[in-house]
């Protein structure tokens, strides 16, 4: 076993200080980082436990909207009546995790910052694995890989359950660093790396996500996931739709290296949620999708996910 330090700070400032060290990583529910370490896909010299930081958990209503702490558990979301009622898109995404054990341990921050499930990455070939100068996944078996944003070498898919609905709802992320807090649009947390040396997050050295804030309620929102298994299984494609004041946001999950905002699908829904606009949004969402050698079916799944999310947001 590789030895590592374990530390459990009480404040976000201390956490940032302790994370500002080469090889340090944040630990919350442990549902991802421990398997990364055990599988040898990542090695850390220090784990900084965030669960002891007061104020990092919980769900609160504030002037800015509903604030969800980074160490709130996914299961906490499902027990929050206001959240489940106002933001079914988020609740449905949490439900989709499909495992009581994971719901009880995985944190919101951990979900938003989860590393990809790409089987080349998990086998230790790196986040952007290369073979003879070309993407390994593009040459190999890419049935679960990206159909958007895949023109470069990175073709893994972002695994977050919550990011698509939260981004669709216009959520912001508050990030704590050495210079204090800063707030960004949640979608700006993600980036597509060009190589395994780069991160898929925009977080700076030592920075942590402390909470996300969903602005006052959009009237209609929903998430639809397509999975092979009905129980615990990674989605093959998901879509979250949120409509507010005639403007619609559509965000796709598990189809690109980042949560994937589909402006075209949003425009198709701008005139209202109808059978026709839902179908048009599905078509628009995949108009610029590009299949790899083995994942063409995900285009159809994405089309359907968008259509069904839109219809669910309308109320069936």
């Amino acid at each position: 076993m590789r030895r590592f330090e374990y530390t459990s700070p009480q404040t976000a400032d201390d956490a940032v200080r302790m994370l500002s060290s080469e090889g340090a990583a944040a630990l919350a529910g442990g549902t991802d980082i421990l398997s990364l370490m055990k599988d040898g896909a990542a090695a850390y010299s220090r784990l900084v436990n965030l669960k002891g930081i007061r104020g990092l958990g919980g769900i609160r209503n504030t002037d800015a909207g509903m604030e969800i702490g980074a160490t709130a558990k996914l299961g906490d979301l499902l027990e929050h009546h206001g959240l489940v009622t106002m933001f079914p898109a988020v609740a449905e995404a949490a439900m989709g995790v499909g495992s009581r054990q994971v719901l009880s341990m995985r944190t919101v921050g951990g979900d938003l910052c989860a590393r990809p499930r790409c089987w080349y990455f998990r086998a230790g070939f790196g986040l952007v694995p290369m073979h003879d100068g070309e993407s390994m996944a593009k040459q190999g078996d890419n049935r679960y890989h990206a159909i958007f944003g895949n023109s470069g070498a990175a073709v893994f898919v972002n695994p977050s359950s919550l990011a698509p609905p939260l981004i669709a709802l216009g959520a912001s992320a508050t990030i704590h660093g050495a210079d204090g807090p800063r707030t960004i649009a949640l979608e700006d947390l993600y980036r597509t790396p060009a190589s395994s040396d780069e991160s898929e997050f925009t977080l700076g050295f030592g920075e942590i996500v402390t909470h996300v804030t969903i602005p006052p309620p959009s009237s209609q929102n929903a998430t639809y996931e397509v999975r092979n298994r009905k129980g615990m299984d990674w989605p093959l494609a998901t879509a979250s739709v949120a409509v507010s004041d005639g403007a619609a946001r559509v965000v796709l999950g598990h189809v690109a290296p980042t949560p994937w905002m589909s402006a075209a699908a949003g425009e198709a829904l701008a005139g209202g949620l109808t059978d026709a606009s839902a179908a048009a949004a599905g078509d628009a969402a995949v108009a610029d999708a590009r299949a790899l050698s083995g994942n063409g079916y995900k285009i159809q799944l994405t089309r359907v996910a968008v259509k069904r999310a839109a219809l669910a947001a309308r109320g069936g």
Partner: peptide, 11 residues
């Protein structure tokens, strides 16, 4: 047992 997919009770 993540992508070697065994059916669960819901299936």
């Amino acid at each position: 047992m993540e992508f070697y997919k065994l059916a669960g009770i819901a299936d």
